[in-house]
Structures are given as C-alpha cells and as structure tokens.
Amino acid sequence: MTTARETVLGRIKDALALAPAPDTTVPRAYRTGRTLPDDERLALFTDRLVDYRATVHTCTADRTAQVVAEVLREHGARRIGVPAGLDPRWLDAYDGEVQQDSGDIPAPRLDALDGVLTASAVGCAETGTVFLDGSPDQGRRALSLVPDLHVCVVDLSTVEAGVPEAVARLEPRRPTTLISGPSATSDIELERVEGVHGPRTLAVVIRTDR
C-alpha cells in the first residue's frame, strides 16, 4: 500500500512535472549587516519599546540590583520567580520572596507569582523586540509567560539595529520567543488592548555598559 507520505511527495513531483518553473534566485537587496552607534541604538530601541507600551529603565550594570528592586517594588511584586541561572547579585536589593524555578514546578504555581525576572539573549532596536532563548539565565518558556509581570534585563551590546541582524544572532535549536511589548489583542474592532494571556506588564531594564 502506498503511504500518505509517498502519495503526497509523488503528487508534488507530478505537479512540478506538469508545470515546471524556472529556477529562482533570491534577491536580497534589503538592508542587512547594519550597525548603529550605541546612543542611536539605545534611543531607537527605547522609542519602539515605549511605543508598544513597555516600560523602560536604563542604567549601568553596577546599578542593576537597585533598578530591578525599584521596578519590582513599583509594580507591587512581593513574590517573584527567577530562572536557576540568573545572576544572584541582581536580587541583592530586593526584599521580597524569590522562587527559583525548576522544571517540576507546575504551571498553576507560576500563576501564583506576582512577577518574573529574566535576562535576555538578543534585542532588535527597530522593532522594539526582546528575544529569549531559554538559556539558564532566561529559564524555560512557561516561567516568563505565566506570571503577570515580566521584568527583563537587556544588555545594550546584544541589541541589534534591525531584524536581519538580530535573527543572525539566534541559535535555531533553542526554543526562542520574540517579545514586543506586553500581550495585546486587536480583535475587538481592531482597537489595541494590552493584556490578554501573556504578562500584562513588560518592564525592560537596559544596561548600557555591557
């Protein structure tokens, strides 16, 4: 008996034989390999994040712990989750409860957290996008999804000018999440509403000297 796989592949080959098409080369005349000076990248990234209703805090690396603590306090986060590989010094100034994540914590327990603090892998200035790739300082995907507040630390050195430059930095095999502002919907009369299922608040802490 012919399997579905053989049948479908056979049909495709038949189709291509019936309607052969000339070889196509892909023109890539769009912008790639762009670089921007630090201050311009910071300004563009910040502008785009704010435009999509993320809150942005900028600091030098030595002030990470203070700024993180301020942001968490500002949002009333008393219990937060962190990935196992997060730099523990980032929590030095935070006086709330910290739950270090592990794979056996079920999702409903993540739902009981006020927020989550993670690092990030890459940023894209032109679109205001943060990329998470599941590295130890970012944790599994559920952790940065279920709690209602996501505080994300981004090093300016990882922020690229545009999408091609950012995509080039990704490791395809890692589970990757692109985040551009808080969860939103335009499903009701195409009016953008922030906050559906993902975190309703996204706070980005940009560190300028790393």
């Binding site: 785009r48 599994r140 395809p172 890692r174 589970p175 999440t177």
Partner: peptide, 21 residues
C-alpha cells in the same frame, strides 16, 4: 497584517526541548 512593526509574540521551537515545553 496588524500594521505593527512586530507582533507582540512569536514562538519558535525545534522538535522537543528537554525540560521546556
């Protein structure tokens, strides 16, 4: 599609990742 520079979320995954998803 939505007329946004980027949609809020894009998820990319490759097969199964142990301990995640």
């Amino acid at each position: 599609s939505t007329g946004e520079r980027m949609n809020p979320y894009t998820s990319m995954w490759t097969g199964v990742t142990p301990g995640d998803g």
